[in-house]
């Protein structure tokens, strides 16, 4: 069989790119919704902000595991 194209370099970079898609969208929705809530009810800002950071922390973990995996499986 003849090879038409060859990939050189590290495939881990693609893996990290894939791992970043979901959390990227997730954090976008999360912060957007939190801002919407703050705009509607400015007096609830502190509660919303705390919960927003919590949500970001959980969502972001997936992307970071992707980053670590890129280094682990070199």
């Amino acid at each position: 069989m003849e090879l038409f194209a060859e990939i050189s370099g590290n495939v881990n970079a693609i893996g990290y790119g894939l791992a970043a898609i979901g959390p990227g969208i997730g954090i976008g929705i999360l912060v957007g919704k939190a801002l919407e809530g703050i705009a509607r009810q400015p007096e609830a800002t502190s509660v919303l902000r705390t919960n927003m950071f919590l949500g970001i922390a959980f969502t972001e973990a997936l992307a970071l595991i992707g980053l670590v995996a890129g280094f682990l499986f070199v």
Binding site: A57, F58, E60, A61, L64, I65, L67, V68, F71
Partner: peptide, 13 residues
């Protein structure tokens, strides 16, 4: 585990 990885990966990156 997530506490560890979150801090570690952020600082590493």
């Amino acid at each position: 585990l997530t506490l560890t990885i979150r801090l570690l990966a952020n600082m590493m990156a």
